[in-house]
Write a protein that binds this DNA or RNA. Structure first.
Lengths: 358, 358
DNA sequence: CTGTTAGCGCATTCAC
DNA sequence: GTGAATGCGCTAACAG
């Protein structure tokens, strides 16, 4: 197929040695203007693509990956992120990587700051970053930039940073998608409750806000469904959720659908079950273990999913490609798919990209 | 991380040379019982995993891939399959592969037979097979088996064959999924039309039949929606579709939804538009270019999608892994995800697995 | 049957 | 500043 042209070939064409070509390719300096020009001409002409395998073989360097994400609870969102990372490290076990996790409490800016400080001090070759607090992250990225440490975002991206890549779903689209689903499945003449607390203040992540923005914009365009009540009923504790929900339903007995804009749909589903309201449909984000259970039980109807394990898998892959040959795109954004999951198409346990054996 | 143990190490441990170990790993014979036992013991103990890169480097063999699929029209289903293959060949351009396509008319058994004959004669290292006609495929596979040529299925699997792997979505689940969507979005007190011709006879592919089976089984379980009319209105020609649809709607004016069980949803959508029936919702399978247009226009509401380009991408990947080191699983099935696509989550043009550059 | 050896393409070190 | 030389881990050909 393609890719037959070797470094030696272009060396020959340019009338230099392989070593010189290599120096130019890797921008390692110590090359005369004349040779540089000659080689670059050939390089441009032939469209050289290095052989991944031989590079990897020759480069016996061990790369230091720092992974900085919120605490990954098993079966929860960030747990899936971690799984994707592990699975990629396994898939690419032929490149020598040592990974180190730095995890913070995503509800606690202080914890995040502390964690970020550690990351900034760590001598990493690359950082994979699942950001929550915007300002802190901008700060961390500036520090990494100044130390020349590249970083890759998963889950969401942060303005005013310079990541190598960012793997995240478009949040406003998620909101619009939610809107369109609501329009489609909301029982006629019923009210809809939008549930999920939107943390406020400068320390907040964008995702929830962007989802809501997308949703509301969509709802303005298609104003053919009953009024919507943005509320904040989802506390961490089960009882809170149930009580708030009960109060709300007293005011709005004609509710036909609850849309949860975070991963806590299972709390709502269970609360509704306890309240004996089987007639109310539930939509949630994220296929956490609890949500999957509710989906199977039928107490959650739909899940909107932005494959976290795929995002992190691809992040590791991109990191490797960046490090081995300096693959850098102008636009770091890697738009990730958004899926709709029902009981009938729950994805299997093994991620798609991994073959089964081992 | 893992993968530090080299072939040389295990040779040392077993008290033999690297060459012997290699012979055993590759089942190339010419090894004494004693040495074989010793090496296999060590092998099992240490859980050796060969280094992909060095294998690929050392093996400068050029692999011959034969791809045998229905004619890939641009923007249609099998066009996506081809795209996935090309994209994988590009991704793995560092292994030397020559690919050759053998395409047949999926509506014509004679064409398929002829094509299969050519494939059976071709000296391939591996065959990637998108089957349509069951009996012919069983026959081809038997011939490939007898010649020792491995094969991998995409899109669907065929009983009584021995593929290395099979990348396909579970069709009955697709049917059940369709059922659940119908239940969710079908307007109350409206009828539902199931559209799509189910070719009959021994030469038929399974997919459509299995989808229908899944759908009907699901509908039996949840009999809370209005009667369904399995019909066969979708001809190849536009005018046929429109006429048949018009007749049908005369008998069933109260139709609220048409579910198309193949990729021809756009024909129905356009026909409904021509008939001025904007009130009828449309679901279809497969995100072909035409269907994507209708989705954007709003004339198709939902698409059920079984990422054809992902299936074929993974098929090529599996083929490479199988050839380079004889990775073979007991169960060839690789269940593929099924997605629900609306206007708001149409996947981007670049497939997920490929990074953008080059 | 078995050990030894050459070489895959590239990155890097070391003489020149 | 530059070319030649070495080795990464593995495969396959070759010599015993």
């Amino acid at each position: 197929m393609a890719q037959q042209i070797k470094i030696k070939d272009i060396a020959e064409r340019a009338g230099v040695s392989a070593g010189t070509v290599d120096r130019i390719i890797h921008g390692r300096g110590n090359v005369s203007q004349k040779n540089r020009a000659a080689v670059e001409a050939v390089l441009k002409e032939v469209g050289y693509r290095p052989n991944v395998h031989t590079s990897a073989v020759a480069l016996k360097k061990t790369y230091r990956f720092s992974v900085c994400i919120p605490l990954p609870d098993d079966g929860e969102y960030w747990g899936s992120v971690k799984e994707g990372i592990e699975s990629a490290l396994d898939e690419y076990s032929d490149v020598s990587i040592v990974s180190r996790y730095f995890c913070y409490d995503q509800t606690d800016p202080a914890s995040c700051r502390e964690c970020y400080d550690a990351v900034a001090e760590e001598p990493s070759d690359i950082v994979i970053l699942g950001p929550t607090f915007e300002e802190l992250t901008v700060d961390l990225c500036a520090r990494l930039d100044s130390k020349g440490i590249p970083y890759i975002f998963v889950d969401c991206t942060i303005p005013n940073t310079r990541p190598v890549a960012a793997f995240c779903a478009d949040q406003p689209s998620c909101g619009r998608l939610l809107g369109s689903i609501i329009r489609m499945i909301s029982p006629q003449d019923k009210e809809v409750i939008i549930a999920g607390r939107h943390r406020v203040g400068p320390a907040t992540a964008n995702n929830t806000r962007e989802i809501l923005e997308g949703l509301f914009r969509y709802m303005e365009e298609f104003s053919d469904c009953r009024p919507i009540f943005p509320t904040a009923i989802i506390g961490t504790a089960k009882s809170d959720c149930r009580n708030e929900l009960e109060l709300l339903l007293k005011d709005h007995p004609d509710t036909g659908l609850v849309a949860v804009i975070n991963s806590r749909g299972h709390l709502v589903a269970d609360a509704l079950r306890d309240l004996g309201r089987k007639d109310i449909r539930v939509i949630s984000f994220d296929l956490t273990r609890q949500n999957e259970r509710c989906l199977r039980e039928g107490s959650i109807d739909l899940i909107i999913l932005q494959h976290p394990e795929m995002q992190s898998f691809l992040a590791v892959k991109a990191a490797i490609e960046y490090l081995i040959y300096h693959k850098r795109d102008d636009d770091p954004m890697r738009p990730m798919p958004i899926d709709i999951i029902t009981r009938e198409n729950i994805p299997g346990p093994s991620s798609y990209f991994n073959t089964k054996s081992q």
